[in-house]
Nucleic acid binder design. Structure first.
Lengths: 100, 100
DNA sequence: CATAAATATTCTCTTTTAGTTATATTTCTG
DNA sequence: CAGAAATATAACTAAAAGAGAATATTTATG
């Protein structure tokens, strides 16, 4: 699963948003997400496979942590679009490079 | 369809990437995309519904144009993650705000 | 006006996704 | 060591996504 697909699902974005504040046990995410425990567990598995989070064991808990490097791919794709909405100067540049 | 879902599909990203260079007829996109004409047409419809492209008629052609404002939502979501990989100072900030 | 060109729409099929319930696994605790 | 707590996995279901073939629609052209 690519980061693009991983991030397309709202619950998975919510998980990442929570993990921005720091490492959290799976249970916290279940509590936050209006989803069944297995449902959250599966999303976490996908996020792991996409390289967007990592886990470590802490007793019977699993602590999930954001692995933000995985988002670089998204960032890299988006980068060339950024100047389109940046400012008027960029809009001019856009116009100039159009239909070359 | 949200911009997130729209952009999750590789052919649709390819379409947007092509349109960055400027307005293009649907046929050009079909030629570029190793996909059937109806397949491309359907992706274009989804991109239109997601607000990422616009169309105008030109005779029997349909000229598609990038509508980059739609990507702002993606950009906005991604923004708070950017500092995670920006540089060492950001990494420190990340560490400090963790587990608050 | 008949045909061609460009594109959209419909139908059908297959695969994937997201969700649930039930069950298994692991670790902690009395 | 028995039961509880936390999480993962399995099995199943329903809905959605993506693709192709066939067809419709619209506009241009001889």
């Amino acid at each position: 699963m690519t980061p693009f697909e991983a991030v397309a699902e709202p619950s998975r974005r919510a998980i990442l948003d929570i993990l921005r504040a720091g490492e959290r046990p799976a249970g916290d995410l279940v509590a936050a997400l209006a989803l069944s425990q297995p449902g959250v567990s599966k999303h976490l598995k996908l996020l792991r496979e996409a390289g967007l989070v990592s886990v470590r064991a802490d007793g019977q808990r699993r602590l999930y942590r954001l692995q933000p490097q995985g988002l670089k791919e998204l960032e890299a794709w988006l980068a060339p679009y950024r100047h389109f909405w940046a400012d008027r100067l960029a809009a001019l540049g856009d116009h100039l490079e159009r239909d070359q």
